[in-house]
Simulated scan of single mutants.
Amino acid sequence: MTFDVIVVGAGIVGLAHAYEARRRGLSVAVVERDHRAVGASIRNFGFVTVTGQRAGDTWRRARRSRDVWAEVAPQAGIRIEHRGLWVLAQRPAAAEVLHAFMQTEMGERCELHSAREAGQHMPALRTEHATAALYSPHELRVESRDAIPRLTHWLSQEHGVEFFFGEAVLSVSDGEVHTAQRSLQAERIVLCPGTELTGVAGALLKDHGLQLTRLQMLRVQPEAGFRLGAAVMSDLSLVRYAGYAALPQAAALQQQLSHEVPHSLAHGIHLIAVQSADGSLVVGDSHHAADSPLPFASEAVDELILQHLYETLDLGQCRVVERWVGVYPVGHHEDCLVVRPSPSQRLVLVTSGTGASTAFGIAEDVFNQW
């Protein structure tokens, strides 16, 4: 079976490359070891984050990906749950970071509000002890566990992408991909291995010092009628997201947090909260790196995440209805690794947990440069 492009991996990075190839009129096959996407692409927030991404390529790709999501979602029957982002500064040092961010090009069209103003715009925020809040209009949010299957179906039914699910790739050579069931041929092959760092992509990744990071996430059900209306972050995000953390003003915030919430920093926790159609909130997350992360979640880590949630949102009573563990690769000095082993092959790996936010922009860059 012969195609113009074969994509190995049906997560969001693979799907983005399949979409980009079809947009250019190329015939495409996607090979996926599992019977459906079950990895990082459906375990995340579904939050397409622009503001706070690392300056340069990551920020540029996030803006492009947001535009593609906005265009593709209605065509694929994917609901956009909400738009925008509020970053609540709970400490004066955090407000200084936001003030500095607003002076960068990445602050364009963002708004910096006093705590009182933020509370008027977003009643769900706990602003009584806050110092400021940044609002970004650039973000959008989809329900990832629903969006990925719908995007897959749309690419298959409307764009003629051929999918081979439940077929592990055994070997890849120039122009050929071999599974246990079949051999496929193509002029171009894109490997999107996700967390499979030791599979067929292992030889290409062995010198890049990659690990996997395990994260914990929760779904909580607030009282009926609670409305968020936009994604929410807080102080810990300002020392984790590179677009803020690279600013000189972030050093003072980092030092203060290391004294006040050392356990949260040690577990790599920063708060993100987004809302689903049923009113529930997807909340997270923590980060623990290892070569092979253990699957056991810590209740103490979940409690820390929930503590930051209650400090940031005026929730009242709510209950945890789901808990899960996600995994994604880390270790590359940039947010995305593109390896070019031969003229006909590319390996593409997002190494920062920003796949949903940047994959469409990455795929466009890969084909532009190929």
Rank of each mutant, 00 (worst) to 15 (best):
M1L: 11
F3K: 07
F3V: 09
I6H: 02
I12T: 00
H17Q: 05
E20T: 12
A21R: 12
A29C: 01
V31R: 04
E32R: 02
V38S: 15
R43V: 07
R43L: 10
F47D: 06
F47S: 01
T49G: 04
V50K: 01
A55Q: 14
G56I: 08
R61L: 09
R61H: 03
R66I: 00
V68K: 00
E71T: 15
E71V: 12
V72F: 08
A73Q: 08
G77A: 08
V87A: 03
V87P: 02
P92S: 04
V97Q: 07
F101C: 15
M102T: 08
Q103Y: 06
T104R: 15
E108L: 05
A115V: 06
A115N: 04
A118E: 09
A118L: 10
G119V: 04
T127S: 01
L134M: 12
Y135F: 14
P137F: 02
L140K: 04
L140F: 03
R145N: 08
D146F: 09
L151Q: 12
F163Y: 09
A168R: 13
A168S: 15
S173N: 05
H178V: 11
R188K: 15
R188P: 02
V190Q: 11
L191I: 02
C192T: 10
T198W: 06
V200C: 10
L204Y: 15
L210T: 13
Q211T: 02
L215M: 06
L218D: 02
R219V: 05
V220T: 15
P222G: 09
E223Q: 15
A224V: 12
L228Y: 01
G229V: 07
G229D: 05
V232F: 03
S234Y: 04
S234F: 14
L238C: 06
Y244S: 08
A245W: 02
L247D: 01
A252N: 11
L253W: 03
L257N: 03
S258F: 14
L265P: 06
G268Q: 11
A273L: 01
A273R: 02
G279M: 07
L281I: 13
G284N: 08
G284Y: 11
S286V: 10
A290V: 08
D291A: 11
S292G: 12
P295V: 11
S298F: 10
S298I: 11
V301A: 02
D302Q: 11
D302C: 08
L306R: 06
E311S: 12
L315A: 10
G316V: 03
V325A: 12
G326C: 06
V330L: 00
V330P: 07
H332F: 11
H332T: 10
H333R: 13
E334P: 00
C336Q: 08
P343I: 02
S344L: 02
Q345T: 07
L347T: 01
V348E: 07
L349Q: 03
V350Y: 04
A356N: 10
D365V: 07
N368V: 01
